[in-house]
């Protein structure tokens, strides 16, 4: 492939260095040898993305934009064509809604869903004068694939426990390729890796029974936890003020790592800066379907709901 063509991704030049970096990181995360953004000859324009916000806090958008690899500037300008995204799009009001409707009519886009859909009553979430549930179902209908991001959009999360009874994507839609990237929020590598895999292969990566990519969710936090030795030695932290308990297992502080599948212990957060457990805080189990209610109260393992027995 000549150099020019190689650099020419979906009609837009991106800096070759960041392209290679992006590709390598995402491929490594999925345990695959090499992946690249699809060749521009095969598709006209950048792949269209519709990004809907249900009952959410925008923390997942913030988390997707918490990586330097890929560069957030490339994400917004080069990687995909973000036709609708309430937090970053310049349009508002009817201009925004027209862009949404036009893209839905066009079809064949990737639908990213952030936040849950209220099940108790549509009036808990209206956008542009209609229930977000209706807009979401219309957008899901014509989507090529749906990526549900965060605990709320996957399994309801905290909103699933409130009077609004928030539901995740797979509770409302079937017969579409759906991938769940849970977490409160999700981790950016999960999003970029999954999107890149989909754009390369036209299919979603191998998923578990909760529709999570096996590449990121096959191991439990507990299996790779640096405090595992202390767990086995029954060295449990009971007092955060006691220097002698430095590095002790957080089980008695409510750690849900034993029931939680995620690569947090391996790849950390914020580009390797830290994790909940590394900062002495118990894992809240935010990537599991029973989160939040099934794991509450979070800071003790005395009471486990949702069929969990310590």
């Amino acid at each position: 492939m000549d150099k020019e063509k190689e650099n020419f991704i979906h009609g837009v030049f991106i800096d070759r260095r960041s392209f290679l970096k992006m590709t390598a990181a995402a491929a490594a995360a999925l345990g695959l040898g090499s992946l690249s953004w699809p060749d521009s000859a095969e598709a006209a324009g950048k792949p269209a993305v519709l990004w809907l916000h249900g009952q959410e806090c925008t923390g997942c958008t913030e988390s997707v934009l918490s990586a330097l690899d890929p560069d957030p500037r490339d994400v917004i300008l080069d990687v995909v064509s973000i036709r609708y995204h309430e937090t970053i799009m310049a349009a508002s009001g009817y201009v925004a809604e027209e862009a949404l409707e036009a893209t839905i009519l066009e079809g064949n886009y990737v639908l990213v869903m952030e936040g849950s859909i209220p099940n108790a009553d549509d009036r808990y979430l209206y956008v542009a004068g209609k229930p977000l549930r209706i807009t979401f179902l219309e957008a899901a209908q014509n989507a090529a694939a749906i990526i549900a991001i965060g605990a709320c959009a996957t399994y309801g999360g905290i909103n699933g426990a409130t009077v609004t009874r928030g539901l995740g994507v797979s509770d409302l839609v079937s017969g579409k390729p759906i991938v769940n990237l849970p977490g409160c929020p999700l981790k950016p590598t999960w999003f970029y890796g999954t999107l890149l895999y989909y754009l390369n292969n036209g299919t979603l990566p191998p998923l578990d029974s909760d529709l999570r990519p096996l590449a990121y969710f096959s191991r439990k936090v507990h299996q790779d936890c640096p405090r595992r030795f202390n767990f086995m030695q029954k060295n449990f932290l009971t007092d955060w003020n006691d220097p002698a308990q430095e590095g002790y297992c957080l089980f008695l502080k409510g750690c849900k790592g034993r029931w939680t599948r995620s690569d947090c212990s391996l790849t950390l957060w914020n580009e390797g800066a830290n994790t909940c457990i590394k900062s002495n805080a118990p894992c809240a189990g935010c990537t599991e379907a029973v989160f939040y209610d099934g794991f509450s109260p979070l800071y003790t393992n005395g009471v486990i709901k949702g069929g969990m027995i310590p």
Binding site: G59, E62, S63, S66, C184, P185, W269, N270, A273, N274, T275, C276, I277, K278, S279, N280, A281, A284
Partner: peptide
């Protein structure tokens, strides 16, 4: 912020 708080968004510490 995450260096001192575990992760961001939504700190843990």
């Amino acid at each position: 912020s995450a260096l001192f708080s575990g992760k961001q968004p939504h700190q843990a510490s």
